Amino acid sequence: TRVETATETAWISLVTALHLVLGLSAVLGLLLLRWQFPAHYRRLRHALW
Rank of each mutant, 00 (worst) to 15 (best):
L18H: 03
W35N: 12
T16V: 15
T1W: 04
L24I: 13
W35M: 15
W49F: 03
L30D: 04
L20D: 03
L30C: 14
H46S: 09
L30W: 09
V15T: 07
L18R: 00
V3E: 01
T5M: 06
L24P: 05
H40S: 12
H46W: 00
R45I: 08
E8Y: 05
L48F: 04
R2Y: 12
L48H: 02
A10I: 13
V27P: 05
L33T: 03
F37Q: 00
A10T: 12
L30Q: 02
G29Q: 00
A26M: 09
T16Y: 07
T7P: 13
T5Q: 00
L18F: 08
H19P: 13
R42D: 08
V21P: 00
L14Q: 04
A39K: 12
L28K: 03
I12W: 05
R42S: 11
L14I: 13
T5C: 00
L18G: 03
A6G: 13
L22E: 02
R43W: 07
E4V: 12
L32E: 00
R34W: 02
S25D: 01
L44V: 11
L20K: 01
L20W: 06
H19N: 14
L14T: 11
H40A: 14
A10K: 14
I12F: 08
V3P: 01
Q36F: 07
W49R: 02
L32R: 00
R45H: 05
G29L: 14
P38G: 08
W49N: 15
L44F: 14
H19E: 09
R2G: 08
R42E: 06
V27M: 10
P38K: 14
S13L: 15
R34K: 15
L14D: 03
A39M: 08
L22M: 08
L20G: 11
V21F: 15
F37L: 09
Q36N: 13
A47N: 06
L18M: 09
T16L: 14
F37E: 02
I12K: 12
A39W: 11
H40I: 08
L33V: 09
G23E: 03
S13R: 10
A47P: 03
S25I: 10
Y41C: 14
G29N: 00
H19L: 15
T5V: 03
V3M: 00
